[in-house]
Structure formats: C-alpha cells, structure tokens
Simulated assay, not measured.
Amino acid sequence: MLHNFAGNVEMYGFLDSVGSGPVEARVSKNSTMVGVGMSMEGIEQNPVVYDLMSEMAFQHNKIDVMKWVDSYSSRRYGKFVPSLQEAWNILYHTVYNCTDGAYDKNRDVIVAFPDVDPTVYSINRFSTKKSLKDEDEPFDKPHLWYSTSEVIRALKLFIEGGKELSRSNTYRYDLVDLTRQALAKYANDLFLDVIEAYESRDSYSVAYLSEKFLDLVDDMDALLASHEGFLLGPWLESSKQLAVDKEQEKQYEWNARTQITMWFDNTEEEASLLRDYGNKYWSGLLRDYYGPRAAIYFKYLKESLATGDRFNLQGWRREWIKLTNEWQNGRYVYPVKSEGDALSISQRLFDKYLYDSGINDH
C-alpha cells in the first residue's frame, strides 16, 4: 500500500479497498502474493488506514468494513460513545471513501500556496460549489472528494462526545486532526473569496477577507499546538540530536527546515519546483511560515488595487523566497510539548468558523 507522500497531513483513504484488496490479490489467478506490506513515504497520519491495513496481514477473507468501523471508536478510545460511532461512520463514507482515483498530494492553500498571478484563476460562479473551473491551471488545485458539510457534522459529533473522552490521547489526536481538516477546506474557499473580491476590484473585501484568512491560520496554529502529534518542535529537535558538533547541528536543522518548505534549488525570483512537497500542518510552521507567506501575497493584492497596476508577481516571489531562506536559516527553538486544551479550542473554532459557515459543499 502506497498511501502517503512526504508525510503530508491530510485525512484521506479508501477503506473498502484496504479491506478487500489484499485478499483479492492473494486469490487472483496466477497470484504469486506471499504477504502484505506498506511502502509510504511518510507515516504518523491517518491511523485508521494503517490499523486496517496491518490487520489485513492476518485475514483470510475480506473484511466487512462497515462492521469494522462500527467498533473502531470503542477500540481506539477504550470506551463506547454513540456520537463517536456515528461520527466515524460519516468519516468512513466521506474522507475515507476516496473513489475518484485521483493522486492525493495535499495542495490546500495554507500549506501549498499558489505561486501565480491572481488573474489566472477561473472561479466558477455558476455552481452550488464555488470552485476553480476545469480548465488546466498553472498550479495544483486542492483535492476534494467528499461532502464538506457531512465532515463538519462529524466534527460536531466528535465535540459532543468530548466530555466523556477528553482524557483519551487518541481521541484528542483525532479531534485536532478532524478540526484541522474541516478548517483547511474552509480556508480553501476563503482564499477563493479573496480572489473573487480582487477580480471585482473590491478593496474593502480583499482587506477584510485576507485578514480573516490570516486570523484563521493563527487559530489553526493554536489548535495544532494542543496535541504533540502536530508540533514542529520534535521534528527539528530530533534532527539536531543526530549531530556530533554545533556546526553539524546547524546543518541538520537547516536540512530539516528545508525539507518541509522549499528545496534549495531556487533563485531570488524563481521558486524551487519542489516547494511544499513535504508540507505539514504543524504548529509553529503555520504561525511563522505559512501565515507570513500568505500575508505577503495579500499585501501585493492590496497594492495592486490601490495603484491600479498589475499584480507584482516578481515582487511577491522575491519576498516569499527571502522569507523562506531566512526561516530555513533560523534557529528559533520550537516547543516539543503540547499546550492548550484540544476540546475547548476545537469547540471555539467550530463556533467561530464552521457553525454557520456557509461552506460550499461538494
């Protein structure tokens, strides 16, 4: 199973395929299959996918995935909570039912900000879902294969069950991840709202919506900080621990910072083709890199409207690449322990952004 690339953080999978594919392969005509394996570029995300795939090594028959999911929350959290069982059934039919055959590489706007002139966007205003039109775009569009409103409903159920499970580390991990997933898709739509306002030459809305986007990034950083599974600090500290002296420590930290941002073959005005390949939703990275990067782009949008000039694409690129290189060379020590209450933060952000968000559905 090749499920994940570069350790990107994205709730994604096709559980029905996992629960049947290995058995079908084993019993197929002329099969030479002798075992089950996983060959992902990154792990430590989507534990439900890896739980099921690991179990398939011991199964002689296909699994009834619906039945398996029904009991999953009890096994994972150590307690049966009806709202969590219902939530996982929703997730099974949405984020974990990706049947479109598309290659999933997280290109959410926050973690993979489009490096394009805003005039290249073609926003479809004649659909119930605001989206980019189907024409080829000079950037990778975010992948969306499920009903966002259904996932928001699952999140509501997760939060409702929180009082009974707030002591469970696995529950808190899943809660933070699901809240992050819902907010990330909300951010994609919010970015399109900014672009639509720019196309309409609406300076007030561009300013208001771009600040709302940046506020959301900061809020998501605080959310991610509430669980140790979403921290930048452990990644950087583990790299430094491999060093034998201070000079090597500095080099290893630079390597770790570069791997998750922009690989070092850029010029002052041309970004690396391998930018954001290893993007991560990690606390610290949103606050100090993804947020400031988006702020630069929005600054040039507002300047374009104020002066009447075209969007300064080269100016944006120079500042973005400069920000990237400075962050890569930084030595700020990020926390390795979580901070904040995941349940209360998730509830607050749900109420702030998703309770009546009007998010465009799939």
Rank of each mutant, 00 (worst) to 15 (best):
K29Q: 12
N169T: 14
D70M: 04
L209G: 01
E319A: 03
W68Y: 08
Q251G: 06
W263T: 12
K133T: 15
A222G: 06
L354V: 14
L192R: 12
D356Q: 13
I152R: 06
G7C: 07
F58D: 05
E211V: 00
K141Y: 12
L192N: 09
R76S: 09
S131K: 13
Y103P: 00
V244F: 07
N124K: 09
P335A: 07
S304F: 01
Y289D: 07
T148M: 04
E55M: 01
N360H: 11
V49F: 11
S71G: 03
Y334L: 07
W88Y: 14
S131V: 03
N325G: 06
I296Q: 09
E150I: 03
E150A: 10
V194C: 08
G233L: 00
R180I: 10
L144C: 15
A294E: 07
L165C: 06
Y103K: 10
R76P: 00
T99M: 12
F350N: 07
Y277S: 12
D351F: 06
D351E: 15
D215E: 13
Y334F: 14
P118Q: 15
S71I: 04
Q248Y: 04
D64R: 00
Y171N: 05
D341H: 14
N188Y: 01
V244W: 08
G13F: 10
P292G: 11
I296T: 08
D134V: 11
G278S: 12
D202G: 04
F213G: 02
Y332L: 03
Y252D: 09
M40H: 10
V206I: 03
H362G: 09
L236I: 10
D117Y: 02
A256C: 04
I90Y: 01
D202I: 07
N169Y: 12
A295T: 04
D140R: 13
K163P: 00
F113W: 07
Q59G: 01
S166E: 10
E326S: 14
D356E: 14
G7H: 08
D104K: 13
L274G: 02
R257F: 05
Y72L: 01
T307S: 14
S166A: 03
N360W: 07
T32V: 07
Y96D: 05
R172E: 02
S31H: 13
R180T: 13
D215C: 06
Y300N: 06
F311E: 11
